[in-house]
């Protein structure tokens, strides 16, 4: 049995958020560089170049890439032979969020009573934590600071099963057509299909942790990802919605079996600033 100290979890979460908001994963940068080559509109190309300059500047000056340093989303994969000691796991993570957001000069964007007073909690807590028990004896922590603009364009629906591929393709493309320009394109779409309503949105969010442009190992799902991506890039929305040929960088689908009566589909919208980072303890 492995023992993991809460103190170590706090420190890890703090540094993951600090770094995630300043350094974009290399696969996201590579995908943006490719988009700069593919984009047909001059203003669109110029916009992606500004985005790339911004990424370099954030790194050079230790500034957050985007001022919306997001909701602190944390995914935990807890080995079943792990014993977490020295405190409470949830509190350890929230202490890490508080520390990371303070030390990293990140924006605190979380408000209490979102339906009325909307008073800022002051330290970007509480984190949104999803845990999964997995075989083994370690702890894997993923952080995903999720900006509000793109999250606001996320959607969930439960389709009648007979709609199949076509229904899914149409739903996702219509959604991007409706609000894609508000979500800071070029976009990355996390899509969940199957499970129950809460499960499918979780699949969609987890799909954002994949390497940008990587495909699902299931060939049918891979084709569906390619079809949706091609359809979105026909819309003409382009970088930042100014018009252009690159509206999305990637579509990532994760699937799960579903009830005989249901086909839940969730889209978790991600702006180009796809920040996530992981560590293993």
């Amino acid at each position: 049995m492995r023992r993991i100290q809460c103190r170590a979890i706090t420190e890890t979460v703090a540094s993951l958020f600090r770094d995630a908001c300043i350094y974009l994963p290399p696969d996201v940068i590579a995908s943006l560089k490719r988009a700069a080559r593919l984009e047909k509109s001059p203003l669109g190309r110029e916009t992606i170049k500004s985005i790339l300059r911004n990424i370099a500047m954030a790194k050079d000056h230790l500034l957050p890439i985007c001022q919306d340093t997001g909701t602190a989303v944390v995914f935990l994969e807890i080995g079943q032979d792990t014993h977490i000691i020295g405190g409470n796991l949830t509190e350890a993570i929230n202490r890490g969020v508080k520390k990371g957001y303070a030390e990293g000069y990140l924006r605190k964007s979380i408000v209490h009573r979102p339906f009325s007073a909307r008073k800022n909690t002051g330290d970007n807590t509480p984190a949104v934590i999803h845990s999964e028990i997995v075989p083994g004896d370690g702890l894997r922590i993923y952080v995903l600071p999720k900006g509000g603009g793109a999250e606001n364009c996320s959607r969930l629906t439960v389709m009648p099963p007979f709609l199949g591929h076509e229904g899914i393709v149409e739903y996702v493309i219509n959604l991007v057509d409706e609000c894609g320009s508000n979500a800071c394109p070029p976009l990355i779409l996390g899509i969940g299909i199957g499970g129950t309503t809460e499960q499918t949105m979780l699949l969609a969010k987890k799909a954002l942790l994949r390497k940008t442009g990587s495909h699902n190992t299931d060939t049918e799902i891979k084709k569906l990802e390619q079809k949706i991506l091609a359809g979105i890039n026909m819309l003409g929305i382009g970088p930042m919605g100014y018009g252009g040929s690159v509206t999305a960088l990637a579509v990532h689908i994760e699937a799960f079996p579903a009830h005989i009566a249901s086909m839940p589909v969730a889209v978790n919208m991600q702006c180009w600033c796809s920040r996530h980072r992981e560590a293993v303890l």
Partner: peptide, 27 residues
């Protein structure tokens, strides 16, 4: 429109910032 997400780049154009109203609203 300014480029969404380009917060670091845009901040380089800001030469001075001073509070004007509602400081209790933080950011």
């Amino acid at each position: 429109a300014a480029v969404g997400g380009a917060g670091a780049l845009l901040s380089r154009s800001i030469k001075k910032i001073e509070p004007v109203a509602y400081p209790e609203l933080g950011a």
